[in-house]
């Protein structure tokens, strides 16, 4: 009976340890690195004249995509169906930036420098 108890205890401990060891196997947090890479992408597009000419910007973006496998999206906007009301201002439809991760290419449709996606490619 005691042998059975010890076997059961050991099995419980073993399963617990396996579960714990799988839970602690977390990877490196690369969020800061990805943020820095996004800044690189912006600077590279600027250096290639992409903020003055969207064609050059898309060419630079596609070059970055070829090198890194990462996608970018910038400046896409859509008209909201809802009204945006600011204190003391008239209400009306608002243009808001919509960023959809581009699928395998760069898609720069306008210059909205603060709204910029740069990261893993996903389907539109």
């Amino acid at each position: 009976m005691q042998l059975l108890e010890s076997i059961i205890s050991f099995a419980v401990l073993l399963s617990l340890s396996v579960a714990l060891s799988q839970g602690t196997d977390s990877g490196v947090d690369d969020s800061l690195y990805m943020y820095k890479l996004m800044g690189d992408a912006k600077n590279v597009i600027h250096l290639k004249g992409g903020f003055a000419d969207l064609g050059a910007g898309n060419a630079a973006g596609n070059e970055i995509n070829r090198l890194t496998g990462l996608c970018m999206e910038m400046g896409q906007t859509e008209l909201t169906p809802s009204l945006r009301v600011a204190p003391g201002a008239a209400s009306g439809p608002a243009l808001v930036p919509v960023l959809k991760p581009a699928a395998g290419y760069a898609n720069l449709t306008g210059i909205v420098r603060d709204d910029f996606y740069f990261g893993p490619c996903m389907g539109n």
Binding site: D40, L47, A60
Partner: peptide, 12 residues
């Protein structure tokens, strides 16, 4: 890696 523009040929 970091992305840079190499000035001599202006390649990424």
């Amino acid at each position: 890696y970091r992305l840079v523009v190499y000035e001599p040929d202006m390649n990424v």
